[in-house]
Design a protein around this nucleic acid. Structure first.
Lengths: 216, 216, 216, 216
DNA sequence: TATGAATGAGCATTCATTCAT
DNA sequence: AATGAATGAATGCTCATTCAT
């Protein structure tokens, strides 16, 4: 009991530090963020931060990695509805598209994107890691789903990797513009409109499988 | 004469400083870049930098602005071929798409994108300015062209703003993934493949106006 | 029994800490040595060091004092052979001289010397304590022996304090130079040569007692 | 003029920093000395110290080196009187001995000795450098003089290196004891007594060449 | 008693910025 | 106009020391 409570406390503190770190890094950027501020935000003393995470760099890497994992998981959840190949995929596509946009429009996503770009030069490996665990995995998952839909005759035969890539591009590209890189709030209605426009275009190109064969 | 030569020298020095500044900022990021390094790269003494540009911030703003203007101009040139409404727009689209990708894949573009994201928190206004002068203007120009093509019956009736937005998204989104945010070289062949896939999808959705049947 | 064993364990731990402390202080110097490293070297946790020895300063004092006592005891042993006033003292002198040099050339002696000098400013009293318990006591012991030898007519009448002082100087001075303050190994042969040269000079000045009285 | 004055100012500042640094290092030791204190003592701002001397380590090395050169030069001056081989060397020996003791008893010498020992572990090369430029060069110079005196028949034939080494040992050894490693003031009278005792013993061993009977 | 965890205080170093020349 | 030199303000990191268990 005591042991569990203690280690719980330890873990909580570490989590608190990582969360505070991501928050501060997101607001200030890597270089401008100072460890003292992170410590303050986490409610601990500066050396405690160092005890748990060695370095400003290490702190940054762990904070970013954790955020990337969170976003990645959210994204995978968002496209879960596409697993069903028994139905016309259009409603599921519209739903997933909107869910993805909500995630991408979230603060965490914007911050992650921002930080990743910002530190491209300093931590290129971290950029790759983040991309893999977020858009990379998402694209793969999506490609899998699209491939099955295509096989099931719900989508025209196509390269599922390209299709997934383009669907995502049709979602995130316009969002980036409309949100002005994340500096502007985008209403739910606008998100829906982006999502639907994306799905429309996507289906124009990839829709219409066997049920209404375009004589592929 | 002397006066002109002198002011010419002055201008040259200012340009040299701005160029060096963009280079250094691009390589190190805003905070990590130090004025001394920029001065060294420009071949002048540190106070000279301050004489010309007041501030690190001012220096940054001017350097970024100049780069944005350059990229913006390049982009506008790239889509010049779309002005012609007398022909099937497909070849021009493929050409413009490829040209745009080459620009977006260039070092300057990547650096600009990187820096803009990196300093979102510190200089949000600069982010907007850059976006306006690059993708913003480009999107507008493109929307104009597409509107005329649509009017001319070369494209299906559509919202030209959305169409432009999506075409750009289909180009830049996949490029970003493939180039791993700019850290990886992308071959000309791959660029062409991205461009063609984008145009294919775009034309599936927006192509086929009245006068120019796809069967062409 | 248990009590004894326990207190034995306690004492052992304390000894281990002191030994580790001297080792670490010797290698790093007072300020550069950190308590954590000492704790690690002693195989205990940091607070345990504090439990036993209060302070970094206290720890240092005890460690140095213990080392000084060890060296002091060794030195006294080394000159035991001079107690004999019945024989020509030359062989005993040569033997004692060599033994002293071996001690002074030992790691512990060098470390002690180094640390004492290093912390002159911070702990001047400790410097005096160390000097008293090592060269001080040795000089006194030696002076006693020389006085008796002189009285016994084995040495010319002289001020035994000065004589002892000079004999020690003739030993340690050259050793310090040859060993480059302890950074260089000095061979046994070289030690012997130093010892003999010292005794030669010493006997030239102080040798020749009653057997060939110079009629002081 | 202006240039000279300016560079003069620069040099003066550098000298001031080095002098202040030696002072502070001597009083506090390397690790305990903080650069701010040195800057204050030199009457400059901290970064100025770094501008001139790069590093705390570099600062230390230059300060110590400069002090070593000063002491070395003083020592060489002190034994200048021994160059004369036409006279009985005894008065010159007594004079040089006393002069050397005054130097070795000076604050700078003590500090140099202290610091050298203190940082043996951190900067062993510096220890050697200091020893070479002070006692090393002195011993050589002295050996030269003694060799010539010996050749001139003013001293008994001997190994001049050993003789020099022993003479210096007879001076510095007792001084170190009497001054308690430099923590205690030693009166001029006591210095003279040490010097004379050293010369007495030295001459007992090495004096009495062929041409200059001791009875002189 | 022994220890994992936490902290307050301190220090080297860097950098944007400003004078004096 | 251009520069060498100087500085005030920060910031990463370390370490002796103390709690709570």
């Amino acid at each position: 009991m005591t042991g569990e409570a203690a280690s719980r406390g330890r873990i909580d503190k570490r989590q608190a530090i990582l969360a505070a770190a991501f928050e501060v890094f997101a607001n200030r950027g890597y270089a401008q963020a100072c460890v003292q501020e992170i410590a303050d935000a986490a409610g601990v003393a500066k050396p405690t931060v160092y005890n748990h995470l060695t370095d400003k760099e290490t702190l940054y890497r762990h904070a970013v990695e954790a955020a990337a994992d969170l976003v990645g998981a959210e994204c995978r959840t968002a496209v879960a509805g596409l697993r069903d190949t028994d139905r016309n995929p259009e409603p599921a596509l519209r739903d997933s598209a909107y869910r993805l946009l909500r995630i991408c429009n979230g603060e965490r996503s914007h911050a992650l994107r921002s930080l990743t770009f910002a530190q491209l030069a300093s931590f290129p490996d971290l950029a790759n890691l983040v991309q893999d665990r977020t858009s990379g995995q998402l694209a793969e998952t999506l490609a899998d789903r699209l491939a099955r839909l295509s096989l099931a005759g719900r989508l025209r035969p196509c390269d599922p990797v390209v299709a997934a890539e383009q669907l995502l591009a049709l979602l995130t590209g316009p969002l980036e513009v409309r949100s002005r890189l994340g500096t502007r709030k985008v209403s739910a209605a606008e998100l829906k409109s982006i999502a639907n426009a994306a799905v429309d275009t996507f289906l124009s190109a990839y829709g219409g499988g066997t049920s209404a064969p375009e004589m592929a």
